[in-house]
C-alpha cells in the first residue's frame, strides 16, 4: 500500500470513529494505538510516519473533537526516543527557561499544562537541558483544573519537591517545539476545514428571501474567501511537511483560522452562536489552538527578525529552496 493510500484509509477510519460521536472515542483511539503512530515499532510504537499522525490530528480536529492527541503523541515521541514507553496518558509542556532541579526534585508552579488532570506523566521541555519526566500521580503534585475557551484542560500543576527524571537522549527543545507547532498547524487546518464544511452546508440549505443564502452574492463571496484561506493553509501545511517550514505553516494556518472563524459565524447568523449548533465546537478550538504553545505573533516576529537579518537575498533563497523543485 502506498503512503497516500494508507493515509486515506487512516483518514476514513478516524472520520468514521469521530462521526460516531462515542464518548469513549479517546479509548478507542488508544486501543488502536493511533496516538503513538509515527513511533517506530522497536521503540514501542505502531510504526507509521509523522505524516500519518498529521492525518489523524487533522481528521479529529475537523469534527471539532478535543482529545489529547497532540500532547500525548508528542510526549510519547520524546520519551520513546530515549527509552521505553509506559502505559497511561502522557502530556507535554514547554518552558521558556530551564527549571531549577535540586537533587532530583523540582518545585514549581506550571500553568497551562494540557490535560494534566487526566495524565499519568508530564514531560517538561526547556531550552538547553534534557527533557524532564514527572509522575503526576506523585503525592507531592497538586493539579488545579483550568479550561481554555474550547473547554479543554489547561491545568495548573504545582510541584513541591517532586521527583523528576531526566530523559537523556531525547530530542532537543527546538525539535519538540517544531513538532508541536506542526501538529497544531494540522489541528487548526482540520478545524478550519470543518468550519468551512459546516458553513457551506448551512448556506446551501438555509433559505431566506425565498432562496438558499448562497444565492446572495455577498454570501457566496464570503464562502469563496473561506475557500481561498483553506487553499493557502493547505499549501502551507504541504510545504511544512516537505521542507520543515513550520513557522510558515503556523502563521498561515493561524491567519486562516481567524478569517474562517469570523466568516463562519457571520454566515451562520444567530444559529451559529447557540450551544446546540456545532459550529462553536470548531470556532472555539480555532480561537484557542491558533495561538497554542507559541502565538502567531511570536512566530511572525521571529520569522521577521530572521528575514531582516538574512536580507532579501537570504529570504528569497529560503523561499525558493531547490528541494521543493526537484
Amino acid at each position: 500500500m502506498s503512503r497516500s493510500q494508507f493515509a486515506e484509509e487512516l483518514r476514513s477510519l478516524v472520520d468514521g470513529l469521530a462521526a460516531a460521536g462515542s464518548p469513549d472515542l479517546w479509548d478507542s483511539l488508544v486501543d488502536l494505538d493511533l496516538p503513538r503512530i509515527g513511533i517506530d515499532e522497536e521503540r514501542g510504537g505502531p510504526g507509521g510516519s509523522l505524516y500519518d499522525l498529521l492525518v489523524v490530528v487533522e481528521s479529529l480536529a475537523g469534527h471539532g473533537i478535543g482529545v489529547p492527541i497532540v500532547e500525548a503523541s508528542t510526549a510519547d515521541w520524546v520519551v520513546s526516543r530515549a527509552g521505553d514507553l509506559a502505559d497511561g496518558l502522557a502530556t507535554v509542556v514547554l518552558l521558556d527557561e530551564a527549571p531549577d532541579v535540586a537533587s532530583g526534585t523540582l518545585t514549581a508552579e506550571l500553568t497551562s499544562v494540557p490535560w494534566a488532570r487526566d495524565a499519568a506523566r508530564l514531560v517538561l521541555c526547556a531550552p538547553g537541558v534534557a527533557p524532564l519526566q514527572v509522575d503526576l500521580g506523585d503525592v507531592s503534585v497538586t493539579v488545579r483544573n483550568v479550561d481554555n475557551i474550547a473547554g479543554e484542560p489547561r491545568d495548573t500543576v504545582v510541584l513541591t519537591a517532586t521527583p523528576v527524571t531526566s530523559v537523556e537522549g531525547a530530542p532537543a527543545y527546538a525539535e519538540v517545539r517544531e513538532r508541536l507547532a506542526l501538529l497544531w498547524s494540522a489541528a487548526v487546518l482540520g478545524a478550519a476545514h470543518g468550519a468551512y464544511r459546516l458553513t457551506r452546508t448551512y448556506v446551501s440549505e438555509r433559505e431566506q428571501f425565498g432562496a438558499p443564502l448562497l444565492k446572495i452574492p455577498a454570501v457566496a463571496g464570503n464562502l469563496a474567501r473561506m475557500r481561498v484561506q483553506l487553499v493557502q493553509a493547505d499549501a502551507a501545511l504541504a510545504l511544512a511537511r516537505e521542507g520543515g517550514a513550520v513557522d510558515i505553516a503556523r502563521i498561515t494556518t493561524a491567519a486562516a483560522a481567524t478569517e474562517i472563524a469570523q466568516i463562519a459565524h457571520q454566515l451562520h447568523g444567530a444559529m451559529g452562536i447557540t450551544e446546540e449548533y456545532p459550529l462553536h465546537r470548531l470556532t472555539r478550538r480555532l480561537w484557542s489552538w491558533r495561538d497554542a504553545v507559541a502565538s502567531e505573533r511570536r512566530w511572525a516576529e521571529s520569522l521577521g527578525r530572521r528575514a531582516a537579518d538574512a536580507g532579501e537575498s537570504g529570504v528569497w533563497t529560503r523561499i525558493t529552496a531547490t528541494h521543493t523543485e526537484g
Binding site: V231, Q232, A235, A236, A238, L239, A245, D247, I248, I251, T252, A255, R297, W299, A300, E301, S302, L303, G304, R305, A307, A308, V315, R318, I319, T320, T324
Partner: peptide
Amino acid sequence: LHALLGSLVARLAVLRRL
C-alpha cells in the same frame, strides 16, 4: 515591524508554493 515582515514573508512563501 518584525511581526509585520514575518507575516508577509510567510504569505510570500505560501504563494510561491501555490
